[in-house]
Design a protein around this nucleic acid. Structure first.
Length: 192
DNA sequence: AAAGAGTCCAACCGCGACCAG
DNA sequence: CCTGGTCGCGGTTGGACTCTT
């Protein structure tokens, strides 16, 4: 078997190992997470003998080794969802990722930059300058945050209170459904 | 076939939030 | 309350891969 991409990219220097992870490092990390759980990254980093910092271990786990990670290209539905959620939230990649089971914030961020931002750019080329000027640059997420921060006191009108945590409590919802996003976007966010 | 340009993606960095002592 | 340690997030980088000429 040929060398993996990770094996070809050996880390070079410094106190901690850096650069791409090898299969052996992955195996050790998975073992450590099984023992300590996906939380104690400092402990995991020091006990495994990987010579990686906790941050690096966490990132590797979250983006690559975690169970149920979905690899491969995005489906149309996923792409649509990302577009809508980005319109809603702006660059809150972790929140968007939370809505896409098996996808990581890093993956979505990369996908957005390499695919979707260009797509949007192209589609906006057809829009006249005047229309662009009248369009709000602010993602709806900002509106949500504004609504949230403006409604902190108990005396505030509870109708206007939007809590992102509550808003994104998806525990009882089919993660693949786009209906609520579509409705929300069509509705114009919390401003209406 | 080779070179250069463009794209993709894993990993790093800096910063802020959170929490225990 | 303050401080240091740790974690999580978003932005950025760099190298491999793919496409184009």
């Amino acid at each position: 078997m040929a060398l993996t991409k990770a094996e070809k990219l050996r880390p070079t220097k410094n106190k901690f190992n850096r650069g791409a992870w090898t299969a052996e490092e992955d195996r050790k990390l998975v073992e450590a997470v099984e023992i300590h759980g996906p939380k104690r990254w400092k402990t995991i980093a020091t006990t495994t003998g990987l010579n990686r910092c906790g941050k690096s271990c966490r990132l590797r786990w979250m983006n690559y080794l975690r169970p149920n990670i979905k690899r491969g290209s995005m489906s149309d539905q996923e792409e649509d969802l990302i577009l809508k959620l980005h319109k809603l939230l702006g660059n809150r990649w972790s929140l968007i990722a939370g809505r896409l089971p098996g996808r990581t914030d890093n993956e979505i961020k990369n996908y957005w930059k390499s695919h979707l931002s260009k797509k949007i750019e192209k589609s906006n080329e057809g829009i006249s300058r005047k229309q662009e000027d009248s369009m709000s640059e602010e993602p709806m997420g900002e509106k949500i945050d504004t609504a949230k921060s403006n409604a902190t006191g108990p005396s505030e009108d509870s109708k206007n209170r939007i809590d992102l945590d509550d808003f994104f409590d998806f525990s009882n919802e089919n993660p693949s459904t786009l209906e609520w996003v579509s409705k929300f976007v069509a509705f114009g966010g919390v401003d209406n």
